[in-house]
Amino acid sequence: MNHFSILLFGIFIILTSSFLGLISSSLNQLGNLKQSTETLELNDAGDLILVEGDPLYPMKLSGLSEQGHLEYIKLGCVNCHTQQVRREELGKDLERGFGQRVTVPRDYIMQANVLLGYSRIGPDLSSVGARKTDLNWHLLHLYNPQITSPGSLMPPFPFLFETVEISETTATDNALVFPEGNPYSPKDSIAIIPTKRAIALVEYLLNLDINYNLPEAVVTKNDTGE
């Protein structure tokens, strides 16, 4: 082999080795994860099997949540929010109540796109649905975060809402309910109506919750930090 062939061979081996070592091997290890019941039972042959009739986790997202998941991606929420809870020795995620247990690979298998995230300008959202259960709170928070969290760095998303004049013919059943005397409330004659996109996004957020057991990850913390 001449000099050039050795160089080419080296260049090829370097990238191939890291592909095989890091990606192929994890594909091997994680590629076949399936939903599971919260606990497993022993069958006669001595294998651990799913408990028949128990619900399977992680649950599949509903159609509306699925749409919300896409909105989450479209709006780039992943740039400021994570969806992962680390082990105790690596940070105060559990103590802050971001989840009642550490997240494991199986938690993500039902998601079309995994949104682990890389930055926490905003809080972790892996269990936001358990922390904040009020639909109206989420809508207000998206409409203008300053209403629910004064001083927040999160941008408002007014384009996910419609502003309508209240008259006898307009339907304002699902209009946002503002807290009394809030400086960001609209005039009395105006109603803020969430669009389908806002409803889908909030439905997704309300369903973000990892506080279920998996055989390999049991809920340990019961107090929420906030």
Partner: peptide, 20 residues
Amino acid sequence: LFASWSGMTYLIGAPVPVWL
């Protein structure tokens, strides 16, 4: 070689196998 293999440091603490 080392740089190409060092990529999983982005996932320290993430829900991936610890050996990675």
